[in-house]
Amino acid sequence: MQWIYIIIYLILALLIIFAVGGHLFKNGTPFLKALFPSGELDLYINRLLLTGYYLLNIGYAVYNLVAHETIQSNASLIQELAHNIGFLCLILGAIHFSNLIVLYQVSKSSINN
């Protein structure tokens, strides 16, 4: 049971992280271009953000790999999977919104100066 949990958890977590990362990279390009109109700064910032995002999230996913409770039945397997994957999604969402806010503030202060 423990091994089934670990395999399903890793597959789901990596799938979510890569899918969301690709989506954010693609849709963030026009947003960053509007915030940093000069030169190729937007492209580099986008790549740096993507790298940081992958490091942070894959790191968290692997760090949180071990289940907190011993898994004995199908029900506890689903519980533990949903709890951990759900918390991973919550963290992804929180990081995503804080990124948006920080980028917006940075671009605003650079325009004012």
């Binding site: 709890h83 759900g86 919550l90 992804l92």
Partner: peptide
């Protein structure tokens, strides 16, 4: 992300 995460978390 926030809503699906919260739904699964609880």
């Amino acid at each position: 992300l926030l809503n699906i995460g919260f739904a699964l978390w609880i």
